[in-house]
């Protein structure tokens, strides 16, 4: 009897396992069909280009009779030996540090303020988004005009209070700051809403309990709000970092990498190498290098997400 029971149990377990195994191998077409359009688009417009860039980076690329002479990793060694590349890398990192100090925290602060606003809240939310509606290039051109040392608005206003004149983009030591500064005033756009939504998702009971325990607004922010939106901050930080490392349009419009390479960044070097010097192989190698940097950051993002989960 005991043996029969064991045999029966064994058979049931085997059947369950087989059922599970069958379920595992069953192809679920619905999600695949839903995913397919985006996967095709993503592959064609992202991955194909990445692999093509890797391929091009291995050649002294000839755009008329591609691909030209195979040089292996020669293009990578060439840019790594180039002093101009290291100037661009250094500038890129300085831009990153300045951007974190001046720009990154602004939407967090805006969201914190916004979360405390009870009346006209929707109005202020819209207000924070309006600068984002302005095309980047138009905004940058406006700032460029305001920086003009001959007839710009800033020096005019600063002169009224006895300051300046400053060179802004004409000052080798001030150029980077002048390029990053508009980010402080234009705010975080959609980031504000993400932080705001994260803050709003924190349980009201936590705030009530903290208030009962005598926590003031500052302490509530430090011990409740910030720890609860850390995940959003980290994700935003990785995205922000990628954006800054790939900065191009604002710098191109303001200074084109000048003066005297003071604002030359890797993204500008990629454009200059390809379209001014027609050295597409090196440009592709630089692009792939930036891809690696961004990929490492994405891995960091995944790990942070995993830890949070």
């Amino acid at each position: 009897m005991g043996n029969q029971l064991e045999l029966k149990q064994d058979t049931v377990i085997r059947e369950q396992t087989q059922t599970r195994t069958r379920a595992t191998f069953k192809i679920r077409w619905t999600p695949i069909l839903f995913l397919l359009p985006s996967l095709i688009v993503f592959f064609v417009f992202k991955y194909y280009l990445i692999f093509d860039a890797i391929y091009i980076s291995l050649f002294n690329y000839d755009i008329v009779n591609p691909p030209g002479n195979f040089v292996g990793l020669g293009n990578y060694f060439e840019f790594l030996k180039s002093a101009t590349f290291w100037v661009a890398m250094k500038n890129t990192l300085i831009f990153f540090v300045l951007s974190v100090l001046i720009v990154f925290w602004v939407p967090i602060a805006q969201a914190l303020f916004l979360s405390q606003v009870k009346r006209w809240n929707a109005f202020y939310r819209v207000l924070y988004q309006i600068p984002g509606v302005l095309p980047v290039v138009a905004g940058v051109l406006l700032w460029k005009w305001m920086y003009n040392p001959d007839r710009g608005l800033f020096n005019y206003l600063l002169a009224k209070i006895g300051l300046g004149p400053y060179g802004w983009l004409n000052d080798l030591h001030m150029t980077k700051l002048a390029i990053v500064l508009p980010g402080f005033f234009t705010g975080g756009g959609i980031s504000v809403l993400l932080y705001y939504a994260a803050i709003k998702s924190i349980s009201a009971e936590l705030f009530e309990a903290a208030k009962i325990d005598g926590c003031g607004p500052w302490r509530r922010m430090v011990i409740i709000i910030l720890p609860n939106i850390t995940f959003v901050i980290l994700i935003q930080f990785v995205g922000f970092m990628s954006g800054v490392l790939l900065s191009f349009d604002n710098i191109f419009v303001m200074t084109q990498g000048g003066p005297a390479d003071a604002s030359l960044v890797v993204a500008l070097m990629i454009q200059r190498t390809a379209f001014v010097q027609s050295r597409f192989g090196i440009s592709a190698a630089l692009s792939f290098f930036m891809f690696i940097v961004i990929a490492v950051l994405t891995i960091v993002q995944f790990r942070l997400q995993k830890e949070d989960d």
């Binding site: 101009t84 004409n170 080798l172 990498g257 000048g258 003066p259 005297a260 390479d261 001014v276 010097q277």
Partner: peptide, 18 residues
């Protein structure tokens, strides 16, 4: 010129700004 332009612009800007 196309390949050397960016190298020459640097000293020109340097003396005009410093």
């Amino acid at each position: 010129k196309s390949s050397l332009s960016s190298y020459l612009v640097k000293p020109i800007q340097k003396v005009l700004l410093d």
